[in-house]
């Protein structure tokens, strides 16, 4: 039997981890001589570290966010308001789209094989005090935590917030202790799981997507696996990845309701207003990213997604 190592960055009882367990069962039961070891919860390191280890062939398959430290073009996946709806998400993450092909090609250049893109929900702003005029980009008079990315910083500021860069691990304490008034960077589910006690409000801005990918090490792919095994792996991962968009549509809604039930007020932004905010954010933030991602590519991806 060939043993393959799959590493993930999700907590063991998160949906993504359950899917990995399911994938493990499907691969092992298919009787093509595969044994699977799953390492969940960043046991083998952060997404950045896993990327390098997969290139090296120390890890065979990874499920994590694709960081851009080895290739700036990969920052494409963290462009604010690349799309705003689940339908567009489904379109972008489907094999054959400009977005998918670009990611596939850039990963291939590094020695990685893209097996599927998994959307895990939209990201909004949570706050401990009520943000004013959320329907526009006017100044909110609030300082919120942002992760260390120029795009995220610029987008959040355009949305009308002052920003402070704080690590995810320190974010809860920072909100709890009022170092900041809130943060951007979590889906409804993550907000519910980790931050609900520290906050009072949640605004589903849909500014960013929590998007991770399945990718394999080309080294292992070529050396370790036979054709039958490769075909099975490709098929199983593609099938499971395709289910993510619908799951995240339901899961976001489910946890927005759970937040309400817990006593966190959800402040929805009307669709028209959201589109205006998105437009403004694209105007200010996208030019900053042109140099690294490429203006043409950004325009091409956006054009495909905004078609009906």
């Amino acid at each position: 039997d060939t043993t393959i190592r799959i590493a993930g960055t999700h907590a063991p009882d998160q949906y993504a981890s359950q899917v990995l367990d399911k994938i493990k069962d499907r691969l092992e039961q298919a009787d093509v001589g595969l044994k699977v070891k799953v390492f969940p919860a960043s046991q083998l390191g952060s997404g950045e570290q896993l990327l390098g280890d997969a290139i090296r062939g120390s890890i065979d398959i990874v499920h994590a966010y694709v960081y851009s430290h080895k290739d700036p073009v990969l920052e494409l996946s963290s462009l604010p308001y690349l799309f705003t709806s689940y339908d567009q998400m489904a379109k972008a993450y489907k094999p054959g789209s400009v977005y998918f092909d670009t990611m596939e090609h850039r990963l291939d250049r590094m020695g990685l094989k893209l097996l599927g893109i998994t959307g895990e929900g939209f990201i909004g702003v949570m706050a401990s005090k009520k943000p004013e005029n959320i329907n526009t980009t006017e100044k909110k008079g609030m300082n919120i935590r942002v992760w260390s990315s120029p795009a995220a910083q610029s987008a959040t500021q355009t949305m009308g917030y002052n920003t402070t860069t704080i690590d995810w691990g320190d974010a809860f304490a920072a909100i709890q202790q009022r170092v900041v008034d809130g943060m951007i960077g979590a889906t409804p589910e993550a907000t519910y799981a980790t931050f609900k006690e520290a906050i009072k409000y949640y605004v589903p801005y849909n500014a960013f997507v929590e998007s991770t990918s399945y990718y394999a090490s080309e080294k292992s792919w070529n050396k370790k696996l036979n054709q039958e095994q490769r075909d099975l792996i490709k098929k199983v991962f593609a099938e499971e990845a395709a289910k993510f968009v619908d799951w995240s549509r339901q899961n976001d809604a489910k946890y927005l309701a759970e937040l309400e039930k817990f006593g966190v007020e959800v402040l929805p932004v009307a669709e028209g207003d959201l589109n205006n905010i998105a437009e403004e954010v694209r105007d200010t933030t996208w030019p900053l990213m042109e140099e690294r991602i490429g203006k043409d590519l950004m325009a091409k991806v956006r054009a495909e997604l905004s078609q009906n």
Partner: peptide
């Protein structure tokens, strides 16, 4: 910076 200038010393951790 945070309190007096209300600014963010961006990405200083790097």
């Amino acid at each position: 910076m945070r309190y007096i200038f209300e600014a963010d010393l961006f990405a200083y951790e790097e």
